[in-house]
């Protein structure tokens, strides 16, 4: 498959803000290739560089070393800026701080308006985007009266209205309650399945990685692990040493393993895990 986003020796250093004048290095040479149409979860504890990595994907942060290519376009090329941002949409943590207008439809229309899309086409895109996130009936609502999960879905609709090929969610579920988180996750999974939109989900909730195609673990500005969720989560010790937890199901299987019951660590779902435990017990 073709690469949607590719990074080559990507480095990023924040301009020094600390008193000792030492610059904060967030990324130290990241080589990644994210395939079009895939669902990728990026994990890492605070300060691992995962959010910075996301910001380099649509030229919000420009690499201080190396490069980032979006469908082969270099993010450092200013003439390609709008083309890149139109392809890679970004959803942030706080839904309140990314909603621009005080009517839902006006907010979703914001990006196509900026792109100079004709009026009738904007109307079509707004309705489609709202239907895609299951918020069709809220067209004329005031965003501040919606729940967190609903606001975040409006923010996703606002990005989809650009007709992007990739959506990056930068800890977009961190401020939501479990119901809101579930709403957002099922929405992005559906978009990935039905519209073939590439999804990069940045999070520190391990459970959100269960259904991903690929999990990337960031640590100290580098890619520490990269692979299918089952493969990544079976390295329980390594993940713990990086300050990360593993999904509850894997933790259970791991603890049972320490006590002598041999349960495979690859069962991520609750049902799967239950079956694996039952199978191990009946042996």
């Amino acid at each position: 498959m073709a690469a949607m986003i590719e990074t080559k020796k990507l480095e990023y250093t924040y301009p020094s803000v600390e008193e000792d004048g030492k610059a904060t290095v967030a990324l130290r040479g990241v080589n990644l290739s994210i395939e079009a149409g895939s669902f990728v979860v990026v994990l890492g504890h605070n300060g691992s560089g995962k959010s910075t990595l996301a910001k380099t994907f649509n030229a919000v942060a420009l690499p201080s070393g190396g490069s980032v290519y979006v469908e082969g376009m270099d993010t450092k090329d200013e003439t390609l800026l709008l083309a890149i941002r139109q392809r890679v949409g970004m959803v942030f943590q706080n839904p309140d701080n990314q909603i621009v207008a005080n009517v839902v439809e006006e907010d979703v229309a914001f990006a196509p308006e900026n792109l100079g899309v004709p009026t009738e086409e904007i109307r079509r895109r707004v309705d489609e985007a709202l239907d895609a996130v299951g918020m069709g009936e809220f067209v004329r609502h005031a965003p501040h009266l919606l729940s967190g999960g609903q606001k975040q879905r409006i923010a996703i609709a606002g990005v989809i209205a650009m007709e992007p090929k990739c959506i990056v969610l930068d800890e977009a579920t961190a401020m939501l309650d479990p119901i809101g988180r579930e709403e957002v996750l099922s929405t992005v999974h559906r978009l990935n399945r039905e519209k073939g939109i590439t999804v990069v989900l940045i999070t520190h909730h391990m459970n959100e990685a269960e259904d991903a195609d690929r999990v990337i673990v960031m640590d100290d500005g580098l890619v520490a692990m990269d692979g299918a969720p089952q493969a990544v989560f079976s390295h329980v010790e390594e993940l713990r040493s990086m300050g990360l937890t593993v999904p509850d199901t894997v933790a259970l299987a791991y603890e049972l393993g320490l006590d002598g019951l041999n349960v495979p660590l690859t069962a991520l779902g609750v049902e799967e895990c239950a079956d694996a435990v039952a199978a191990a017990l009946s042996k």
């Binding site: 919000v60 709008l82 941002r85 949409g89 942030f92 914001f110 606002g158 990005v159 650009m162």
Partner: peptide, 8 residues
């Protein structure tokens, strides 16, 4: 930043 991401 969010506005810029939406091509403003």
């Amino acid at each position: 930043v969010a506005m810029e991401c939406r091509c403003y």
